[in-house]
Design a protein around this nucleic acid. Sequence first.
RNA 1: GCGCCCAUAGCUCAGCUGGAUAGAGCAUUGGUUUGCGGUACCAAAGGUCGCAGGUUCGACUCCUGCUGGGCGCACCA
Length: 528
Amino acid sequence: MKKSVIDTIKKHIENDFVLEKPKDNSFGHYATPLAFSLAKSLRKSPMIIADELCLKFADEVIFESATAIKGYINFKLSDDFLNIKATDAIEANLDFAKGQKEQTILLEFVSANPTGPMHIGHARGAVFGDTLANIGKHLGYQITTEYYVNDAGSQIEMLGLSILLAGQDRYTEIDVKWPDEFYRGEYVYDLADDAKEAFGIEIFSDENSIPKLSTWGKDKMMDLIRANLAMADIAFDSFVSEKTLFEKWDASYEKLKSEDGVYEKEGKVWLKSSEKSDEKDRVVVREDGRPTYLAGDIIYHDDKFQRRYDHYINIWGADHHGYIARVKAAISYLGYESDKLEVILSQMVALLKGGEPYKMSKRAGNFILMSDVIDEIGSDALRFVFLTKKSDTHLEFDVDLLKQQDSSNPIYYINYAHARINQIFQKSGKSVEDVVGVHFNNLDEDSRNLLFSALLLHEVLEDAFESRQLQKLTEYLRNLAASYHQFYNKHKIVGSVDEDQLLKLSAMVATSIRVGLSLMGITAKSKM
RNA sequence: GCGCCCAUAGCUCAGCUGGAUAGAGCAUUGGUUUGCGGUACCAAAGGUCGCAGGUUCGACUCCUGCUGGGCGCACCA
């Protein structure tokens, strides 16, 4: 819709201009402060320039009017124009607000270590990534979602060791020597139980079985993580294993050497990241020849960039922000444009229940389990609340508030608007098909504003996606629902002279709510 | 110490590439019904936009300094 307006204005004006929504919607649907920026060069007052420019739009059918107010040029859209857009949107249904972007994007997110179940912090990044992908795909971007599985390194060994020790503790007479660091959650004992079933009790007596338990335990945890993700309706297009990537280390290493990005010192291999705005150089291969975690990420990003996407997005926990510089340095030494990689940070989540800190799970090792929270409030509420704030701001919420069945619970409030529309159609005995062909005429101001709001979905999606600020979508849906509730209280729909028009308007609102929620991974309710 | 992020109503937060009188929700207070679901709506009240400068016709927005908070500064992932 915005595009149509911009294109129409461009027919008459050569200068670049800002098109915005007026704060006070009685001014119109769109406005531009263009006259202010022209005032200097034309040596005329903005008011006079605006008056002159308005005359050019008199014959445009998409505008009901173009008027100059205090230097701003305000545009009101015509009912004809809004009618055509609404008819198309309602007929498109879930395809409404699709776009034709052509960029290809590789989106990596979650990538939680397969050493335990998903906790609530992981869940935030997961929901954000999944929704970003949904919206992007709707807009036409070709997005591949990917999970990087850290199935190599000391964390996995520690998982194996932890299972072994838990098994010794529970099933043998061995005097267990607990190291400083190991996985403590009760899920490790569950794994030991399963290991006993799978391999027999003898496995716990032999320290040589650690690698076997590591690999086996990692696979079990990966299955658990997939199951956790599925609870929130999240699936990935691809999983990449760190372990298998290491076969390609030599090739990546050669690239780094040829770009003079690495050197040897003290028997170790270092990345010259300090020359690429990192605070210091980083070890890539240790003295004993074992590669560091960074080496894995170097190969992984080499692999990613060989797949030739236009853009790369990684969603990381905010505590990893110091890691960005070194990975970008590596990408640049590998011979790629490091600007193509964008890192979105996902901040910490604090949970409350009834005003008190949410009880942590001993099973998980004193983390809050994603699965516990979903069991309690459901996937819809969890997804919604995670999307109400920018990903890089701290988020605190009370699960009890999300269980309330009234307007203090935004997901409830939005669903209620959708369900209400459904009820009105039932009451009227008509279907959407019956009214979609009706032509709007002489809508009152409220109704026209509501219609306009409902038609904004496409530009909201573009804005939310491009700014990576998905709260713009939740905010939009909440406002749209509020506008509908207001409208409903003011207008009698069923049985009124304008029944068909108002039903069509309602159908339009429902369409935007349905599409918006579905991109967030939530199915709009037809009945509360 | 260095780096990154943040600071807007009592609370949680919006504020678009600088633009019209700084906005929502929650909480508080007071209203609305012979009703298409009141599980809703309306209204009141609530602000020196952390502080001080600068750029600009115009700054919550950009720049500099300061104050206060969070995070990071591994050859762990």
